[in-house]
Amino acid sequence: MKPTIKIDFVSDVACPWCAVGLGNLNQAMKQLSEKVDFEVHFRPFELNPNMPIGGQDAIEHLTEKYGLSEEQVKVNQANIRAKALEAGFEFHPEGRKRVYNTFNAHRLLYWAAKEYGADKQASLKRELLNTYFCLAVDLDDQQNLLNAVGRAVLDCERANRILDGDEFTQEVRDEEATYTNLGIHSVPSIILNDQYLLQGAQPREAFVEAFGQLIKPG
């Protein structure tokens, strides 16, 4: 019987390096799929929990947050787009236009895992990343979130009721607190078998090596 590696992928759908890391992780899991089973859970983290409705211009946000010039931000974005493409995400050529609050996206991801399971949560995670980085549309527009739900082949009417209420709000807050209290303050953070932590958008080879160490006899 194949061993199983549990993966807790702590991330935000507004994090471009989370998309890169996820794409690389998926490639590594595919490479080792004949040797290992994987159990992946997407855990919530908000890069901008206090972002108001309407968001903020992305260039303005990034220059303020990192103290970079607009030109430096654009160079960095081009580098991330290239890395994302290698990982399987074709980011919008003009980049994301605004930075948004992502709490509702995390509520939907919690729902997907609870009522559909890990595979459907993974499908929705990918579609939400596509919504933000590849389509580069407004995350405050509820219809854009529902479109992602539809592409993941989940129940849009159920998702709409969740978004119209406060269902799973406390559950997501509790999960966020759990990982913050573990000392996670940047994403992506990937926890293997509840013991080993990988941080940042690791390349495929790093994941493959880590998985190999976990399944090595003795």
Score class of each variant (00 low, 15 high):
215 I>C: 08
160 N>S: 15
187 V>F: 10
209 E>T: 12
31 Q>V: 12
139 L>H: 01
164 D>N: 07
132 Y>P: 00
98 R>F: 07
67 G>P: 04
133 F>H: 06
126 R>F: 01
81 R>K: 15
128 L>N: 02
42 F>A: 04
167 E>L: 14
102 T>G: 04
25 L>W: 10
178 T>F: 14
149 V>D: 01
57 D>R: 10
80 I>M: 10
121 Q>V: 02
165 G>E: 07
18 C>E: 11
12 D>R: 03
24 N>R: 12
144 N>A: 01
184 I>P: 03
95 G>K: 04
51 M>P: 03
216 K>W: 08
175 E>Y: 06
165 G>L: 09
64 E>M: 09
82 A>F: 09
7 I>F: 08
181 N>K: 14
78 A>G: 13
83 K>A: 15
161 R>L: 14
134 C>A: 12
114 K>A: 10
93 P>K: 08
67 G>W: 08
122 A>E: 14
197 L>D: 00
169 T>E: 05
5 I>D: 08
189 S>I: 06
20 V>T: 09
84 A>S: 03
34 E>K: 08
21 G>W: 01
118 A>I: 00
108 L>Q: 05
86 E>S: 13
31 Q>Y: 11
26 N>A: 12
145 L>S: 03
212 G>H: 07
195 Q>A: 13
5 I>C: 05
81 R>Y: 00
69 S>I: 11
179 Y>F: 15
53 I>S: 13
30 K>I: 10
61 H>A: 12
22 L>Y: 14
141 D>G: 06
174 D>R: 12
164 D>K: 15
83 K>Q: 13
59 I>A: 10
110 Y>F: 15
114 K>L: 10
105 A>Y: 03
189 S>F: 04
88 G>A: 06
128 L>E: 02
101 N>M: 02
131 T>K: 07
19 A>V: 05
12 D>F: 02
184 I>K: 02
75 V>F: 08
82 A>N: 12
147 N>H: 13
144 N>H: 11
128 L>M: 08
161 R>Y: 07
123 S>D: 14
2 K>C: 03
151 R>K: 11
88 G>W: 07
203 P>V: 11
171 E>K: 12
147 N>Q: 13
187 V>K: 04
131 T>G: 09
168 F>I: 03
34 E>W: 00
